[in-house]
């Protein structure tokens, strides 16, 4: 049981996907202009990561090594299409907003990365915990980036006006170049925080 919890929490801070090691960067930049689309995509990624991790680790003994990547990708693509169809059926608005970014979950380095690095070697339950942890970690980071960009960029949060009406909105953050800079600065801050944490830990030790 302890190892499952460890796998799960690992995804939440030590190896939170887009920050600790830069995986799944494309969607983080593109979709975080508004909270609702960020959470929508995050939900999709969680489902895909969990399902692909479980299936990959369930089939890990059967898949010959030579064609490993192709089979993983087929499993991930199936999960993505299921997400796409359900979203089209029940959350049509979100489907319209996300557009091309749903099929692009298939090439999201996070999903294949976890399948290749982790699920291929571990048991099903561990992979499930890892997939869930990574997925939620990814969604949290999406949410953090999205709230910063939406609040500062457009003055709203989930579409509700948050900043005072006279706030003109720093739309640079909503544009593509702003996304790069905002994520870069956040990564830098994250390094500062973790460096200070390590320093404290070292001082304490």
């Amino acid at each position: 049981m302890a190892s499952i919890v460890k796998e799960f929490t690992k995804g939440l801070w030590e190896e939170v996907p887009p920050f600790r090691f830069v995986l799944g960067l494309c969607s983080v930049l593109a979709v975080t202009t508004s909270m609702s689309s960020a959470i929508g995509l995050g939900g999709g990624v969680i489902f895909v990561t969990v399902m692909s991790n479980v299936l990959v680790s369930a089939l890990r003994k059967v898949i010959p090594d030579k064609v490993r990547i192709a089979v993983f990708i087929v499993i991930i693509a199936t999960a993505v299409i299921i997400v796409e169809l359900t979203m089209q059926a029940y959350f049509y608005g979100l489907y319209e907003v996300l557009g091309i970014w749903i099929p692009l979950i298939v090439v999201n380095c996070l999903v294949l990365g976890r399948a290749e690095a982790f699920a291929r070697k571990q048991s099903v339950i561990l992979s499930l915990a890892d997939g869930l942890g990574m997925g939620i970690g990814f969604t949290l980071s999406l949410a953090v980036v999205a709230s910063i960009r939406e609040i500062i960029g457009a003055g709203t949060w989930f579409g509700i006006q948050v900043m005072p009406a006279i706030y003109p909105g720093f739309t640079y953050l909503l544009k593509p170049p702003g996304a790069f800079v905002c994520l870069g600065i956040m990564l830098g801050l994250m390094n500062v925080v973790s460096a200070r944490l390590d320093a404290k830990k070292k001082a304490a030790a």
Binding site: V181, G184, L187, G188
Partner: peptide
């Protein structure tokens, strides 16, 4: 602390501009 990915991203942002 900014070395590596952070500065890479910021440079990409400037180029994107």
């Amino acid at each position: 602390l900014m070395d590596g990915f952070p500065i890479g991203l910021i440079t990409a942002g400037m180029m994107g501009l």
